[in-house]
């Protein structure tokens, strides 16, 4: 029997699930709220992990920072699986069109060989840096506490995998599999890339999910993405005739500024919680920021040569501004 049910007006018995009414009041909840708040188990955990019985299965004490409520952390983009996936699918449509545009018109072949070589020297080793970022964000998602903190990190991890794959496609379009191989050899042995690989491996040895967040998302990518994609590719290399490369890395530029809003919001919430948290964040920044600056310098120098130092310094100034706005001060 098919009945027309739209004609019926029924008074709901309640507006939202209890935990959401407790947090946000007796009103309908958004899809982001339903998808994100309190959905990780918190109490009456049954067993201790076999890798370390002093830890709990979900353990906020894995981090030095403390939150009375980890769900104070929010994603300003309000990404849950669906809104995330739909956003990326739209960006992927653009990226696909850009790749097709460059490929069909043979634009990459119009670039001087020397310029192409420079682009590949800059971008191919970054496939591996992106993979390192994938590893680190996967760890944060796995061991961080509270879904509003951890779920965007899984999205970030998948994004970094996507970026590594866009870079691979770019390499195959501008060069060939050997271009990727040369990039990997540079990543492994060239002096230019060793500080960054060293940094990446050291962050992969960390187990405090928030320190990983700071070292990878806030600090390293906070310098690397604006410098490489916004400054070097979009400005410098485009001006030298590699504007088609900027089309191929449009995703990374947009993604960099989009994710910075989220990273800043998280950092701000962590810092606002307590002086202890601010001290932890500052200690980590003191530990990682100078190393990150040294690591990006030779990479920027691939394109800028002697002017790399001042470009990095400018970026450090911008970065200090971000930290100030996020309230990360002692």
């Amino acid at each position: 029997m098919q009945i027309d049910l739209r004609t019926v007006t029924i008074e709901p018995q309640r507006h939202a699930y209890d935990h959401l009414e407790q947090r946000f009041g007796a009103k309908p909840a958004s899809r982001y709220q339903e998808a994100s708040y309190d959905i990780q188990a918190v109490e009456n955990l049954h067993y201790r992990p076999t890798w370390d019985p002093e830890q709990q299965l979900y353990d906020p004490d894995l981090s030095r920072v403390r939150m009375r409520d980890w769900y104070a952390i929010k994603d300003p983009r309000q990404f849950y699986y669906s809104s995330y996936t739909l956003t990326r699918a739209r960006q992927q449509d653009t990226a696909e069109a850009n790749f097709a545009f460059v490929e069909s018109r043979g634009l990459s072949a119009l670039m001087p060989g020397e310029l192409t070589a420079q682009v590949l020297a800059l971008l191919m080793p970054l496939r591996h840096a992106a993979w390192g970022a994938n590893q680190n964000n996967t760890l944060i998602c796995g061991y961080g506490f509270g879904t509003t903190f951890t779920q965007p990190c899984m999205f970030q991890a998948m994004d970094q995998l996507g970026i590594a794959q866009y870079l691979s496609r770019l390499g195959l379009l501008l060069g060939d599999p050997e271009s990727l191989g040369a990039g990997k050899r540079a990543w492994m042995v060239d002096a230019t890339w060793q500080p960054l690989r060293h940094y990446t491996e050291d962050t992969m040895a960390l187990r405090d999910p928030v320190e990983v967040f700071v070292a990878q998302n806030l600090v390293l990518d906070g310098l690397l993405y604006p410098l490489v994609y916004e400054h070097l590719v979009d400005d410098v290399l485009s001006a030298r005739g590699a504007s088609c490369v900027a089309m191929l890395t449009q995703f990374m530029s947009e993604w960099g500024s989009e994710t910075r809003k989220w990273i800043d919001a998280v950092t701000k919430t962590l810092a606002a919680e307590s002086a202890d948290n601010r001290a932890a964040l500052c200690d980590w920044i003191d530990r990682w920021l100078p190393r990150a600056a040294l690591a990006v310098l030779p990479i920027v120098a691939i394109v800028l040569g002697d002017q790399a130092q001042s470009a990095v310094e400018d970026q450090m100034t911008d970065f200090a501004g971000r930290l100030g706005k996020a309230g990360v001060t002692r």
Binding site: A16, Y17, A35, T138, A157, M158
Partner: peptide, 23 residues
């Protein structure tokens, strides 16, 4: 990793689908 975000999807789509029953 792909399975990880898929499983997040399943948890969220289920909570969303059953949300109107909850009302």
């Amino acid at each position: 990793q792909m399975q990880s975000i898929d499983e997040l999807r399943h948890a969220q789509t289920q909570i969303h689908a059953l949300s109107s029953y909850n009302r």
